[in-house]
Amino acid sequence: MSRLTRILLALVAASLPLHPGYAQEISGADMKSLDGQVQEIKSDVLSIASELSDLEERLLYPSNTQMAVFVSIPEKEAFRLDAVKLEIDGQLATHHIYSFKELEALQKGGVQRIYTGNVPTGDHQLDVTVIGKLKNGDDFSESGSFSFAKGVEPKTLGITLAGPGLGKKGILVGDW
């Protein structure tokens, strides 16, 4: 092998990813053990989160007044959802503006819990307003009013946004 080739190989090798000399200080076992401990704490914190959610729910939304509203989009709906506004008995419950990631998550089959709150037992009215953009770029805004009865058990309503252009029919509300 010529001297030049040796220089060349040394230089080529030098420009490949470096393997720094941390091997003496950081062993693979250290990394593995640390990784195992990180996984362990993740598991612990997840279990705390789960207990905390349960506690929060009991404390903030007792079952006899609890009400939750979920939003979903059927498969293959290509419109762009910009915002959803909910009013319960004429009072603003929530107004959610969607990020691109959130919209994508809905389009892939995710279901969003848009509202959790408290309502007394009895009959109520839910007003839903949806705004967004059609495939051709035109804006749309549609609304619908729906009645529901709240019993002593937690109430769960699902809103399915079946697509613009259908008026109230495009917003389906049902019990889950």
Binding site: F70, K101, A105, V111, Q112, W176
Partner: peptide, 29 residues
């Protein structure tokens, strides 16, 4: 996990909503 059969469990759907956004802690919880 994407659209499969009709979704019957809202809370599973909610977990998917978080997972699709990369929030795996919330999805797992």
């Amino acid at each position: 996990p994407g659209h499969g059969d009709e979704l019957k469990d809202l809370y599973f759907g909610e977990a998917l909503y978080y997972a699709h956004q990369g929030y795996f802690f919330e999805a797992l919880e």
